[in-house]
């Protein structure tokens, strides 16, 4: 069973002077219960639009979304189990962060104590009485996360929650999201910074121009790139290249490095081959594949 199901979702926006923007173009998505799910894609890929559709803010042109088994028109039956941030969190600008949260909480009968708890958890307790308008971008983001946590939701839908946070803040949020997932909640996290979320996600979906181009466990998606490669650094590049190709390796030069198509377990063999010809390895390591690389490959192939 999936917490979020998206089926053939399609959303077009009409532009003022004719023409249309296709924001989401036949998207299928199934987010399983538990863990952190990364919803990745470059600017304008349609992440926010998909989230808006799922939260009932925007009506799909075609297709449907289900969240916690509720269709969009039954969303209110499950909304108190969902915490969300859509783009930069927006609250009443001339009210303090604390008052904004208390007003929201009151709709559900959530008391002041719970508000203090979430403010504490996102590190805003001391600045809780400042008015929202005067918060820094990172503080607004923190207040948004606090609001999302207020109902102790089992599903968090967070649209770029680390946007505007400083490095320490990003790390804090990462730990927070991980701990939320470890408590058994499902975290659905969108981001255009692929490397950023690679570390905390269990599963990802990669979105480009409104379509899903890869979906699955992080390791699977990563291995969808080309075969593993090793990076070799030596002084005598030309000589080393000759030796390696002579020994049957598939190798080529990129800038001042040699890239050898081979798994990391072949490291010893590479180093021995070169040493026998008196070429000594200065650096030998497996080439790291990042979601970014995979993403670039996938989108280049697609266009």
């Amino acid at each position: 069973m999936a917490v979020i199901e998206v089926e053939a979702l399609h959303k077009e926006f009409r532009r003022l002077r004719g023409g249309r923007t296709i924001a989401v173009d036949g998207l299928d998505l199934a987010v399983p219960y538990g863990g952190v799910f990364g919803f990745l894609g470059p600017n304008g890929a349609g992440k926010t639009t998909t989230i808006r559709c799922a939260l009932g803010l925007v009506k799909p042109t075609a297709g449907r979304t289900r969240v916690l088994d509720a269709e969009a028109n039954r969303l209110h039956t499950v909304i108190d189990r969902i915490g969300s941030i859509v783009e930069t969190p927006t609250f009443f600008p001339t009210f303090s962060g604390r008052r904004n949260l208390r007003l929201l909480g009151r709709v559900d009968g959530i008391g002041a104590a719970a508000v203090e708890q979430v403010l504490e958890r996102v590190g805003l307790a001391e600045r809780g009485d400042d008015i929202f308008k005067n918060y820094s971008l990172g503080m607004k983001q923190r207040l948004g996360i606090a609001a999302a946590l207020l109902r102790e939701p089992e599903l968090l839908i967070l649209d770029e929650p680390a946007n505007g946070l400083d490095p320490a803040g990003i790390k804090e949020v990462r730990q927070l999201l991980r701990s939320l997932a470890d408590e058994g909640r499902t975290v659905f996290l969108s981001s255009h910074l692929l490397g950023e979320v690679q570390q905390i996600c269990d599963r990802v979906a990669i979105l480009a121009r409104g379509k899903c181009i890869a979906q699955g466990e992080v390791a699977d998606v990563l291995s969808r790139g080309q075969a593993a490669r090793m990076v070799v650094k030596v002084e005598n590049i030309d000589g080393a290249l000759q030796v390696l190709t002579g020994a049957g390796f598939d190798a080529n030069v990129e800038r001042d490095e040699i890239l050898v198509t081979a798994p990391a377990s072949d490291g010893a063999r590479i180093s021995r081959t070169l040493a026998l010809k008196r070429i000594y390895v200065a650096e030998l390591r497996p080439m790291e594949v990042s979601l970014e690389d995979v993403f670039l490959q996938l989108t280049e192939g697609g266009s």
Binding site: G56, H76, I79, T90, F91, F92, L104, V107
Partner: peptide
């Protein structure tokens, strides 16, 4: 003011 500030959207994610 609520439409302008966007706090309406936040409220609608709370009570759809």
């Amino acid at each position: 003011a609520e439409w302008r500030s966007g706090s309406m959207a936040t409220l609608l994610t709370w009570e759809p």
